[in-house]
Simulated assay, not measured.
Amino acid sequence: MGARRTVYIAGAGIAGLTLALALAKFGLHVVVLERNASISEFGAGLQISANARKVLDSLGLSEAIAARSFAPEGIDIFPDGREKPLQTLTLGKAINARFGAPYAVMHRADLVDALHAAAKRFANIDIVFSVADFALERSGNGLTVSAQEPDGKIRKAKPFAFVGADGVRSATRTRYLGGPAARYTGKVAWRALVAPEALSDVLDLERTSLLLNPRFHLVVYPLPHRNAANLALFTQEKENDLSVLDQRSPRLKSSKDRRLTRILDSVGEGWTPWVLSSVETPLWHDGPIGLIGDAAHAMLPFQAQGAAMGIEDAAVLAPLLAASPTAEHAFSRFASLRQDRVKRVQQVSARNGRIFHMGFPFSVARNAIIRAEGPQGHFRRLDWLYGYDAIQSGES
């Protein structure tokens, strides 16, 4: 028997920790390099669709996620200030029955905490926090990783592979693979958490709500584990005028929409703005260095699949790194299995953004289609997305 394979991962976020768990279950030694001093996850709410949940359940996280998440009964769609939903898309038991796993919402930090807790139970996972920087040096087919640890010492290793799960501003992508910088999409996400009581008489908090408007769209769903409702408001902002980010509230003109006014009043200046950037690059790997998650394919969140794609990536890549003769072979196979699917999800997400912000008269046609598709029309439209089996794909 040869020495156990070691894989280094940059980033202890959702994609990085999921990959660490998946690799550890195959018996590999995993070292995760994290620049923060502890587990930290920006943002607030997170939607976990069936395609991602099946991966997480396979890693033993079913109970932890069930305890900290909520499964909405449906999605209420309110275009242009309508008092009653134009349509309520079915979720709940129906989506579980069709795709083999529930559709749930939870706080991003709760998912990262669950992943971290699971990782700590593996002796073959080592998470190093407060890593100031790392360096990669290629020599033939070999790789040397150097990382500065919190005490100032330099850790050096010659791993089988190095995986950049270091997010949208990935140093792995830009510094070591020569990939592009992230691109501003023209949109800003405004996130907030409010007490459920503040919205109980304007929205049904057993469901997710989607408010559509030509100038913005707003997603609201409950996070009972946090005793909060999550709000994600998306506005369009010109790149040369991002002074709005210095404020604590978005620039929205006064509205006759009673529901929207109540929601905005409940937050006040409690919004946190986040610039939305995307990453599009055909180069996901070179030799023993590869990318997963946002580092490879950050996308607009308008199909709520950014984290899910990183989770899928981990499930596909782990068995390849465990079984392939070289890391380059594993990464090459991984890219061939994932790139077309991820590109399709990116395109759907971008198209949804355009659909959500349609103005008159195009919004009339949009609304007619939403009404005609019925409560389960999204099942047929998204079978390819939610019905995907990442575990089987990686093992094929």
Rank of each mutant, 00 (worst) to 15 (best):
R4Q: 10
Y8F: 14
G11V: 02
G11R: 00
A12I: 10
I14V: 15
L17P: 04
L17S: 10
T18P: 01
A20D: 06
K25F: 10
F26I: 05
G27P: 09
R35H: 13
R35C: 11
A37H: 05
S38M: 13
S38K: 14
G43F: 14
R53Q: 11
L59N: 01
L61A: 07
P72E: 04
E73M: 12
G74E: 14
D76S: 14
F78R: 10
F78P: 00
E83L: 08
K84D: 12
K84V: 06
P85A: 08
T88Q: 04
T88G: 01
T88A: 01
L91M: 14
K93P: 08
I95G: 01
I95H: 01
N96S: 13
N96I: 03
A97M: 04
A101H: 04
A104V: 15
L111V: 11
V112W: 12
V112R: 09
D113R: 15
A117R: 13
A118I: 04
K120I: 11
K120Q: 15
I125T: 01
D126Q: 13
V128R: 15
A132H: 04
D133G: 10
L136N: 02
Q148T: 15
P150A: 10
G152Y: 09
K153N: 13
R155F: 13
A157C: 12
A161I: 06
A165F: 11
V168C: 12
V168M: 09
A171M: 12
T172I: 04
T172G: 02
T174E: 12
G179Y: 02
A181I: 00
A182S: 14
R183L: 09
Y184M: 07
G186N: 03
V188P: 11
A189M: 07
V202P: 05
L212W: 03
L212M: 09
N213S: 15
N213L: 07
P214V: 08
F216I: 06
N227P: 11
A229N: 02
A229E: 04
N230F: 06
A232E: 14
L233M: 11
T235Q: 00
E237T: 15
K238A: 15
E239T: 07
L242N: 09
D246K: 13
S249W: 05
L252K: 03
L252Q: 02
S255W: 01
R258K: 13
L260Y: 07
D265W: 07
E269H: 09
T272D: 08
P273L: 00
V275A: 15
S278G: 13
V279H: 02
L283A: 14
W284Q: 01
G287S: 10
P288L: 07
I289L: 08
A298D: 02
L300D: 02
A304W: 02
G306T: 06
I311S: 01
E312A: 05
D313P: 04
P325G: 03
P325W: 03
A327L: 09
S336I: 05
L337D: 11
S349N: 03
H357G: 05
P361V: 05
V364M: 12
R366T: 04
I369E: 03
I370F: 14
R380K: 14
R380S: 07
R381A: 14
R381P: 11
G387H: 03
Y388L: 12
Q392F: 05
G394A: 01
S396C: 06
S396G: 12
